[in-house]
Amino acid sequence: MSGGAATLLATWRDALNARFAQHGGELAPEAMLAFMRRTVVPILDGWDGEPPVAALMALFDLGALGLRVGLCGEAEASRFERVLVARAPGLRPLIAKAPGLVLRGLGNGYLNVARARGPEAAAAWFEALAAAAPRCPEPSALLDLGIVLGWRAGLAEARDAALDRVGRFEPALIAALFGAPVIDADPARRFCRPGATGPLGPLAQVATVGGFVGFGGPFRRPPRAAVVADRLVCTDGDATFELHADVFGARLVPAAWAHAGAQAAPAAGPCAGVVAEPVADSHHVRVLGRREAGA
């Protein structure tokens, strides 16, 4: 430890100890110290000028809470930490502007993508986001980018929000993210690759969702599909989920708001370019849509 971190840590030692007492709980002090050494110190030491106290505190909180939920590693650096340190040069200006907001946002986003799409998808999400951070002038732009990358990682429910944000990005950034400078928001073309302009192909199975609760799925009984408030849902009579699907993925998201309506609604037809087709005697639902011809 030689740079700005050493001075800052010495000055704020008592405050950090109090913070550890607040957040630490059962946390082993050694794990926290190891996190500080391998993650906090390199980020602060590389700061251009004196690092702000708020950045130290936000990094400290990230460790204290992140260690509890597996975002940060006890014995060695987690993937999240490794990317954070490696991409620190691009992230530092944004951390400096809003330390807590940026670091909590990155951490929570990583955990949420990991829960929805798995650890590999989360690592890819964070790597892509941190790599593009220098293109973001403000923390809010970074978080907007995170939404778009989350959609690309398979969070289909984020489609509308992501399309809204993509519209504000420069074409060069869109091209870097999607391989095409413009994204077609037409719901009918939701299963086409970005940039594809050819005619649509026939209706075909694009994904399968659902599953029996005993095997980690959401349904106790074979579900049926319905349309409630112009939105496609699947229900087994006990619980109802909204189906979100497009070229990046298909997901069932709990939709208690639609449960009563779904019980009374007739079997669903196509809805905004998506068809949900229950499989006889199965807890799965086939998702049908139209990709570009020849895909």
Binding site: R104, L111, N112, I147
Partner: peptide, 8 residues
Amino acid sequence: LYRGPLGD
């Protein structure tokens, strides 16, 4: 996406 154990 940004809600979670680290604080919303």
